[in-house]
């Protein structure tokens, strides 16, 4: 156990060796904190219509609101404070992204482990499905699913899980197949340990490093995809606007020069995605020494 702890510590030290990656990780931590503490950081509950004043509609950043506070980032057409809306939108975007990634991770890992452990027709069938699905772009699969299923937070999560699970399944299967050949799995089999126990206690931990890399990148993908779907009007319902929907709301006002309604949620999205991707890039370099430097 201590060996593993040291290994993790070394990985962390390696990771922090790159200043850019460290900055990305810190930025991401701030983004997460902003999302978690959104209700305490916002001067207004952007979903409480009673707090909105139509006279405050589309004010530029820095204008005073009728309630007394300042619209740091301006207000939208309903007189909603963009700063508050952005923080709450970030909360929803991150929540949906992380939740769908966690679900897809669990599902995909189970499928990948089953394919590698069982082999034979289970493996063949699962991998054909994975191949088939990965041959179509995620956005297309998600669009078609939402077209069939309809709108709603649960449907968005279903769509995101559907487009993601195959990546995990493929990654886990690849590393599990290598591990299955190793001596320690053979030894565990000889001890006649129950299959499930071998898979979970011995196989799974050794498949984690590549899985972590994929998961980091996929969180960013999920957030971006959800934003895109919401922007197209097919994602989150208007009652729980994520960053994508906020940006879409401002789209119409962009041409009249009221840039702040779209731009600030957009910047929040951008900072989040770049931070995750930079950290993911570094993580891949650290965990996979064969990768390009």
């Amino acid at each position: 156990m201590s060996a593993r702890t040291t290994a993790w510590r070394e990985t962390a030290a390696d990771f922090a060796g790159s200043r850019g990656a460290l900055a990305a990780a810190i930025t991401f931590a701030i983004v997460v904190a902003a999302a978690v503490f959104a209700p305490w950081l916002s001067p207004q509950n952007p979903y409480d219509l009673a707090q909105l004043d139509i006279l405050d509609s589309k004010l530029p950043p820095g204008s005073p609101s009728s309630a007394g506070f300042t619209f740091l980032l301006g207000s939208d057409e309903q007189g909603r404070d963009m700063w508050s809306a952005m923080l709450h939108g970030l909360r929803i975007s991150l929540g949906v992204g992380v939740a769908s990634t966690a679900l897809a991770l669990t599902l995909g890992t189970a499928a990948g482990l089953a394919a590698a452990w069982r082999g034979g027709w289970v493996d063949a069938l699962l991998m054909r499905v994975v191949d088939l699905q990965l041959s179509f772009p995620a956005i297309l699969v998600a669009l078609v699913l939402l077209a069939v299923l309809g709108q709603g937070i649960d449907k968005v999560v279903v769509a995101l899980v559907t487009v993601q699970w195959a990546y995990y399944a493929r990654t886990v299967r690849a590393s599990a197949l290598v591990e299955v050949q190793r001596g320690y799995i053979e030894a565990a089999r000889c001890l006649a340990l129950p299959g499930l126990r071998i898979v979970l206690r011995h196989l799974l931990p050794n498949c984690l490093p590549p899985l972590m890399v994929v998961a980091t990148v996929q969180v960013a993908h999920a957030i971006a995809l959800e934003a895109t779907l919401s922007f197209l009007g097919l994602g989150m319902p208007a009652t729980s606007p994520s960053l994508g929907l906020l940006i879409a709301n401002g789209h119409a006002h962009l041409l009249s020069g009221k840039y702040w309604i779209s731009v600030y949620p957009g910047i929040a999205l951008l900072v989040t995605l770049v931070a995750i991707n930079l950290a993911g890039d570094r993580l891949r370099d650290v965990l996979d020494p064969r990768g390009t430097p």
């Binding site: 971006a224 934003a227 197209l232 940006i247 840039y259 957009g266 999205l269 991707n277």
Partner: peptide, 13 residues
């Protein structure tokens, strides 16, 4: 990292 729609918005802007 950037979603297509966001880059498009910036291009328009």
């Amino acid at each position: 990292s950037l979603p297509t729609f966001w880059v498009g918005l910036m291009l328009i802007m």
